[in-house]
Nucleic acid binder design. Structure first.
Lengths: 348, 348
DNA sequence: ATGTTATTGGAAAACGATTTCCGGAAAACA
DNA sequence: TGTTTTCCGGAAATCGTTTTCCAATAACAT
C-alpha cells in the first residue's frame, strides 16, 4: 500500500512535511507544497484514515445515532434521509461515519457508552430524535466529553449544538392554513409522544392558534401512532371540525378512519413523508427537508470539532399539500434525495 | 484511556500476552488467562478497534454498500432493514461497519475504489442490490482482493459468496396462488429492471407458470416503477385476467390504476413492504425477511474473513396477503424489526 | 546428571499517520 | 561582516494494537 512514506521519498522531503502539506499547516513554502502535491498525484496516494484516527485523537470519526425505537415503517424514510444527508456531507468534510442504533445503547451506563465511543476513536456524535427520558444521552451531553449535535432536541452547551425547525411556528401555520381553508370552528389535536422534545413545541403552536381564533380545541395523546390516531378519530372526530395531527402517520390513520366512517373532516399532518400520497385524500402538512437537516448537522459538528462553540440552529420548513400523483411523479426523479451524495465522492 | 499496556501491568504480564488472551491464541496457560481476564474486568478495558485495524490488516472492518439509485421511498424500508440486520449482527461478531452509498462510487475506477477501501482498512464488503452493469463492482469481485457477500446477485468465487431467496420459485408460487384463487385465464406480467439480477429469475418463474397452465401472458417492462406500472396497467390490463408484478411498488401502481378505471383484476406483488397495506385492496405478495437476509450475509462474510470458501446461500420466503389492518397493527409491535439489535449491544 | 523437546511469556518491530521540538539556512538588521 | 530574527524542513516519539521471533522454564527420556 502506498503510504505517506512513499510520498515523502518521491517528493524528496520528510514524512512530517508531507503530513503538514496534507493538513494545510503553516510554515510550508509554496514550492515544497507543489512538490508534495505532485508526488501525491503521481502515486495516487490516499491517506489511511485509520492510522490518522489512531495518531491524532482529533481525526474525524463521528457516530451517527439513529432512533429505531419506533417500529413504524414511515420512520425509515426519515432515517434514510438522515443517513444520506449525513454520509454525503461527511464524505465531503473528510469525516468517517459509524452508524449506531439506539438499541445498541440500551442498558448501558454512561461509562460504558463513553468507553465504547473511545474504543472507536469517535470524537463527535450526531443524535437524531432523542427523547426527554434518554438518561444516558443527557449525561453524555452534559459531560462534554464529545462534540455533539442533536437534531430535534434543543440542548446546547459549550460542546454541543442543536438543530431543528421552528416546531411551534410550523404547527401553528399548518393548522391555521387548514382551519382557514375549511372555515373550521373547532380543532381535534392529536399530539405526539409525551417524552419527545418536539411534542410540547407543536402543542404550543396549535394552542396559540386556538387562543388567537378563540375556538375550542380537544387535545389527545396519539403517541405518533397510526393506530391510536385511528381510534381517537373514531371516538372524537364527530365533535370537531378539523383534525390536526402532530405527525403524518397519525394524519393517515385519522384520514382512513374518517373515510371508513364516511364523514368529511379536513386533516393535516407534520413531516412530509411520501406515505402521505397513499392516504386516499390530499392533506396539508409541514415538509421538513431531512436530508438537508442532517447535512447541516454534519457541518455544525465539523465546526464544533474545529473548536467552535455550541449553538442553536433553526432551519426552515415548507407548507405543502400532498397527493398521490405528485408522490409517484417524484419517485421517478432519481436525483432528488441522493443528490447530495453525488457531490464529494471518494476523494476529498 | 486504559490501554492494553495498563492491563499488562495490572496482570503482571507482557503486552503480547494480553493480546494473545484477548484473541484466543493458543499457548497461553489457563492461569495467565485468568489473571489477564481479571485485569481486563477490573480496569474495564475495551480494546481500541482503530489500533487493532491498523495493526492487523485482518481486524474486521466491513463496508455496507447500499443502492440508493432508486429514488422510490419504498426502498427505504428495505434498506433500513438491511442496515438493521447488518449492524445488529456485526456488533455481535465484533465487526465494524462503514456504510457507503453506491453514488459515492460513481465515476470511480477499480483502482480508486480499492484505494478507498484500503484507506479505510476495509477487508470485507456487503453489496446489496448490485446490477448487471455495475462494471466496477464486478471487477472488484473478480479481483478477489476483498471478501465479499452479494445480496441478490448470484456471483460466487473463492472469496465471495452470494445470498438471496429462490426468486424463480417465489415468483412462480405467488403468481400461481393468485391465478388459482381467481381462476384466471391470462396474465399481464410487469417485469423489473432489465439490468437487475432478480429480474430474469422472476420472469422465468412466471413463464414456467404460464407454460405449465398453458395460458397466454403479456410481458411488459415496468422497471420497478410505480408510475410505469400504473401506465402499463391503464394500457393493457383490460385484456388480461391477472396482473403479476415483479415488485410491490409496481403492484400498488397497478392496483391504483385499476381502481381508477373501476375494473377489478387480482394483482400480486413481490417483497412484502409495508406500503402494501396502503394500496386500497389486499394483495398477495412474497415476503422477504430483509433483516434476516442481511444478518445471514454478515455471518457469511465473517466466515469468508475467517478463511472460508465462497458459496451460494438460498434463504426461504413466505407467501402473504397484506392488508391495512395488519400493517398498522404491526406498526405497534416495536420489537419486530429492531429485535436483532437488542441482542449483542456494545460489549461482545 | 545431561541432553532434548514442548510449552509459555516477553521484547521488539511493525502498521501509517500526527505532532513536537530542534537545527540550519536565509533574511533582516546594524 | 557579524548578529539576530524568521522561516522551513527533518528526526523522532507517539497512538494502541498485532505478530514474529526468541529465551526461559518445565517436562521428559536417556
Amino acid at each position: 500500500m502506498v503510504s505517506i512514506k512513499d510520498v515523502a521519498k518521491q517528493a524528496g522531503v520528510a514524512i512530517s512535511t508531507v503530513s503538514k502539506v496534507l493538513n494545510n499547516y503553516p510554515n510550508v513554502s509554496e514550492e515544497t507544497k507543489k512538490k508534495v502535491n505532485q508526488a501525491v498525484a503521481e502515486l495516487n496516494f490516499v491517506p489511511n484514515t485509520v492510522a490518522a484516527a489512531l495518531s491524532s485523537k482529533q481525526s474525524g470519526r463521528v457516530a451517527l445515532l439513529l432512533n429505531l425505537n419506533n417500529a413504524a415503517q414511515s420512520v425509515d424514510e426519515i432515517n434514510m434521509q438522515y443517513m444520506a444527508g449525513t454520509i454525503g456531507r461527511a464524505v465531503e468534510l473528510n469525516l468517517d461515519v459509524i452508524t449506531i442504533f439506539d438499541s445498541m445503547l440500551k442498558n448501558k451506563n454512561l461509562e460504558e457508552v463513553v468507553r465504547y465511543l473511545r474504543s472507536q476513536s469517535i470524537t463527535g456524535l450526531l443524535i437524531f430524535g432523542m427523547s426527554k427520558d434518554d438518561k444516558v444521552l443527557h449525561q453524555l451531553i452534559d459531560a462534554q466529553l464529545f462534540k455533539i449535535v442533536t437534531v430535534d432536541a434543543p440542548i446546547v452547551n459549550a460542546s454541543s449544538s442543536a438543530i431543528w425547525i421552528d416546531q411551534e411556528a410550523a404547527q401553528y401555520e399548518v393548522a391555521k392554513k387548514t382551519l382557514t381553508e375549511n372555515k373550521g370552528k373547532s380543532i381535534l389535536y392529536l399530539a405526539g409522544k409525551k417524552n419527545g422534545y418536539v411534542t410540547g413545541e407543536r402543542l404550543r403552536g396549535v394552542q396559540r392558534l386556538a387562543e388567537e381564533k378563540k375556538i375550542p380545541m380537544l387535545v389527545r395523546n396519539g403517541e405518533f401512532s397510526e393506530l391510536q390516531a385511528r381510534n381517537l378519530t373514531f371516538r372524537y372526530a364527530k365533535k370537531k371540525d378539523v383534525v390536526v395531527c402532530a405527525s403524518d402517520l397519525m394524519a393517515i390513520g385519522a384520514m382512513r378512519a374518517l373515510m371508513e366512517m364516511d364523514i368529511f373532516r379536513p386533516v393535516c399532518g407534520f413531516d412530509g413523508i411520501t406515505l402521505m400520497g397513499y392516504a386516499g385524500k390530499q392533506m396539508n402538512t409541514v415538509r421538513q427537508d431531512f436530508t438537508r437537516i442532517a447535512s447541516e448537522a454534519v457541518v455544525e459538528l465539523k465546526r464544533l470539532l474545529d473548536g467552535g462553540e455550541g449553538q442553536q440552529i433553526v432551519l426552515d420548513y415548507e407548507l405543502v399539500r400532498m397527493k398521490y400523483e405528485d408522490v409517484i411523479a417524484a419517485e421517478e426523479k432519481q436525483a432528488t434525495r441522493s443528490g447530495i451524495c453525488f457531490s464529494g465522492g471518494i476523494n476529498e
